[in-house]
Amino acid sequence: MANGIDLTLDCTDARLLAAFWKTALGYVDEPPPAPFATREEWFASFDPAEDESVHDCAWLRDPDGIRPRLSLLKVAEPKTAKNRLHIDVRVPGHGDADARWARIRAEAARLVAAGGSVLAEFEGHHVVLADPEGNEFCVAAART
């Protein structure tokens, strides 16, 4: 059996990025692990330092439970270079190349409206964007 993966993004504003990635991926907040009723209760169980807050983190999941979970964790140091690993947002649907490209561009525009920014466009293939904190990702067609 293969191992599963979760993805974690370091950030400066977990709530801002959580809102963006929920919009981008259709993810939802992940509930706290049992037996905890809230994330605050779960977080307090680790006896965090006084300057740490549950609001410095966010945990997201695919509502269908199929795709990797995404954690957003506040860190002190800023992003300083291009990501070595990035997310590809795959736009569903089939059709001819022009129809696929139109869907890719429409999704890129939707994510710009949600706070992202276009970094590069590779005509007919994919668009490179950045989330509100500069983390690079691509929008491309779903693999057939």
Rank of each mutant, 00 (worst) to 15 (best):
S117I: 07
R69G: 12
A109I: 02
V118A: 12
E77T: 08
P48Q: 00
G116H: 02
A2W: 11
S45K: 01
A120K: 14
D13P: 05
M1G: 11
D96V: 10
L16E: 03
V54H: 00
L60K: 07
C138S: 06
A109E: 11
L17W: 04
F137Y: 06
A140E: 14
F43A: 05
D88W: 14
R103W: 09
L60N: 00
V91H: 13
E123N: 11
E30F: 02
H94Q: 07
I104C: 10
L119I: 11
S53C: 06
P31V: 10
S71H: 09
N3H: 13
E123D: 13
F20E: 02
P68Q: 15
A14K: 06
A140N: 14
K22Y: 04
G115T: 01
R15E: 12
P48A: 02
R143I: 14
E133S: 04
H86L: 10
G115H: 04
L7R: 02
N3R: 14
L73T: 08
F46C: 01
A102Q: 09
V139E: 01
P132S: 04
D13F: 00
I5V: 14
P48V: 00
P33L: 04
A37W: 07
G134L: 05
E77Q: 12
A18K: 04
E41L: 04
V118T: 14
I66E: 15
L72T: 01
R143V: 15
P68W: 07
I5G: 04
A24G: 01
K79N: 14
L85N: 13
L119Y: 03
E136R: 07
G134D: 01
D62I: 12
A106C: 08
A141W: 03
A18P: 03
L129E: 01
R15M: 10
E30C: 06
D64Q: 15
E41S: 07
D13K: 05
L7C: 08
P32W: 07
V128L: 10
D98H: 06
L25W: 04
G93C: 06
A44E: 02
A49T: 07
A140R: 11
A49R: 05
A18N: 01
D88Y: 14
E77H: 12
A19E: 13
P63I: 13
A120M: 14
N135E: 01
R90T: 11
A120G: 08
D47S: 09
W42E: 05
A99D: 05
I5T: 10
R103C: 12
W101P: 05
L129W: 01
D131M: 02
M1A: 11
L17V: 02
D10H: 06
E133I: 04
C11T: 12
A113G: 00
R110T: 08
G124A: 08
A114M: 03
A76E: 11
L119E: 07
T23L: 13
R110A: 12
A99G: 06
V89D: 03
G26S: 14
G26T: 13
E133C: 06
H126L: 09
R90L: 15
M1K: 14
F122E: 09
S117R: 13
T12R: 08
C11R: 03
R103H: 11
G115K: 01
R103A: 14
V128E: 05
N3I: 12
T144G: 05
